[in-house]
């Protein structure tokens, strides 16, 4: 195992372009689990980002909230301004592990670890975030919505680094986030869903129900139609199942069942829509 310790972002870009097999690491909460027994991970070359001050900031522009790549969940949990404007970020962050993990885990790390169960990603998707990738060749912005290609596959070239997550500042009439896990804290999601409504635009993103965390376009259309009184009114959770089945493809695994994930996603959305008077 080799660790590369860049002093600056420029160093980091150079190291990444020199060796395409390098794995960037921030908080390490995913990468270092079961470390002593993990031979594959131990033979990897890591690029340690923890020393790069440039990636540490969380800042506001007129139109965006910008999370630097080293922004942790805890940074967000303790930020009153984020809580006021993007409450779902705080809600989601508080449900990642517990305080020890929140202190180390980063939003950017959660994105590039690319777990289908990633807890930070649904809310970012629902808030329409963009991933900024940096490299020696410059900067590229990719909507998070278009970032994932397949299970653990994403549109990050090996020489690129996520440097920022940019979240547009918009007015939302509604925003929900629901995580369902085996217990309240320290839980891996069985099914999760984040929803925002801005005007007539619905954004719905779900995790643990597909090879990647994903937007749910059929559900979005369906909900927008129902809300706009253009569709049939909802009478039961099963009304949502056709849309769910066209959007996601849950599986049976060690953490839950496909049937449960599908049913619970339908039920959560149904009751959330009901609560909202939709």
């Amino acid at each position: 195992m080799t660790i590369l310790l860049p002093g600056t972002l420029t160093d980091a870009y150079r190291m990444l372009s020199d060796d395409p097999d390098v794995t960037p690491v921030a908080g390490g909460t995913d990468l270092f689990a079961h470390w002593p027994e993990n031979r594959v991970k131990q033979s990897t070359t890591y690029l340690d980002l923890s020393g790069l001050a440039e990636l540490r900031s969380m800042r506001w522009t007129k139109s965006e909230l910008v999370l630097g790549a080293l922004t942790t969940y805890w940074d967000v949990v303790t930020d009153a301004r984020v809580a006021a404007e993007f409450p779902n970020l705080v809600t989601a962050a508080r449900q990642v592990g517990a305080v020890q993990i929140q202190a180390r885990g980063t939003w950017a790390g959660n994105i590039v670890n690319a777990s289908p169960a990633a807890d930070g990603v649904p809310v970012l998707l629902a808030y329409d975030a963009t991933v900024r990738l940096g490299s020696r060749d410059g900067v590229e912005d990719i909507p998070l919505d278009e970032f994932y290609l397949d299970y653990k596959k994403m549109r990050r070239r090996p020489d690129q680094l996520v440097t920022e997550i940019r979240i547009p500042r918009r007015t939302y009439q509604r925003a929900w986030f629901e995580k369902v896990g085996p217990r309240k804290s320290q839980a891996i999601t069985k099914v999760g869903v984040a929803v925002t409504v801005a005007g007539e635009t619905w954004r719905i993103a779900a995790n643990s129900v597909a090879p990647t965390v994903c937007r749910c376009p059929a559900l979005e259309r369906y909900c927008a139609a129902v809300a706009g009184a253009k569709g049939q009114p909802l009478t039961s959770p099963s009304d949502l199942l056709p849309a769910i089945r066209s959007d996601v493809s849950p599986i049976d695994d060690i953490r839950s069942t496909a049937e449960y994930r599908e049913q619970v996603l339908a039920r959560i959305l149904f009751h959330a829509l009901n609560d909202a008077g939709v």
Binding site: H34, R183, Q186, A187, I188
Partner: peptide
Amino acid sequence: MANHNLTNYSIPSSDD
């Protein structure tokens, strides 16, 4: 036991 770790075998936390 397939879920032989504390990530996939959950015991109650203080919050539960």
